[in-house]
């Protein structure tokens, strides 16, 4: 590998990780899609359909994304450093990975919402979300697009949150996971506030969202960008001088 290739391998690694992760989890996503389209059909035999099943899948995907960010960095850190990568290169690779993964899942989320919209429309069902003020239909095609437009950003926020916790857990073997305490309520709260709803997960974690859900989507999106940037910087800072653990005999 020449010097220029060495200088850019971090980006190739990040893209490779995103591709490998999407390939690895493609059947999980396919299974989620099948469930989201099959379950409403079953429920419709007994009750009316008012809620978007896909929205629940997308929300589960956010938690899953946090696990992917945290799990990958926790696992890759010793492996990649031992393979001659610097911590800075790994941090950059994780950044590329997070952005590509979030864009891809955002696109899957958007496509699923539109497919579901057509599917629900064919059966005359209502595609809504369980908002704090009751069940709220997502709305027109433009509303659906606007609704889904924030998904890549939210996936990225969850990815950054998971990565911070993953690096911290490697760095401080017994205490790193405690970063869950400040990180999760912030990210979950912003998610709660953005959609004025409770994403899948323990509702009490998103209590911070109750104080800011009147801000409107623009300021909230800006707050999510800021939170994501802070989390990315924190993850990089924790990673940049982390020692590799001693091997257990």
């Amino acid at each position: 590998m020449t010097a220029p290739a060495l200088a850019t391998r971090r980006y190739g690694l990040g893209a490779g990780l995103a591709g490998a992760a999407l390939n690895y989890f493609k059947y999980w996503m396919l299974a989620a899609a099948v469930l989201c389209f099959a379950v409403p059909l079953l429920i419709a035999q007994y009750a009316g359909i008012e809620l978007s099943a896909w929205y629940y899948a997308v929300n589960a995907g956010k938690w899953f994304t946090a696990f992917v960010g945290g799990g990958f960095v926790f696992t890759l850190l010793p492996q990649m450093i031992a393979a001659g990568l610097t911590r800075r290169e790994l941090a950059a690779a994780m950044g590329v990975f997070g952005v590509l993964w979030s864009l891809a899942l955002g696109a899957v989320g958007l496509a699923g919402l539109f497919a579901e919209r057509a599917y629900y429309g064919a059966f005359g069902w209502s595609q809504g979300i369980d908002a704090t003020s009751g069940i709220a239909p997502i709305g027109s095609a433009a509303d659906t697009a606007a609704f889904a437009a924030y998904l890549p950003l939210l996936f990225l926020a969850y990815f950054a949150a998971g990565t911070v916790i993953g690096v911290a857990s490697y760095r401080w073997e017994h205490a790193g996971w405690l970063l869950l305490v400040p990180v999760l309520p912030v990210v979950f709260g912003l998610d709660v506030a953005l959609y004025s709803t409770e994403p899948v997960g323990p509702g009490w974690i998103g209590f911070l969202g109750r104080f800011i859900d009147e801000w409107g989507r623009g300021p909230l999106a800006a707050a999510i960008v800021l939170a994501t940037a802070v989390l990315a910087v924190a993850a990089r800072r924790l990673l940049i001088d982390v020692p590799l653990r001693s091997k257990q005999a």
Binding site: L6, G84, L85, E89, I240
Partner: peptide
């Protein structure tokens, strides 16, 4: 944190 060096070192 020197990529051109650590990429040539294996432990």
């Amino acid at each position: 944190e020197n990529a051109s060096v650590v990429s040539r070192v294996a432990l």
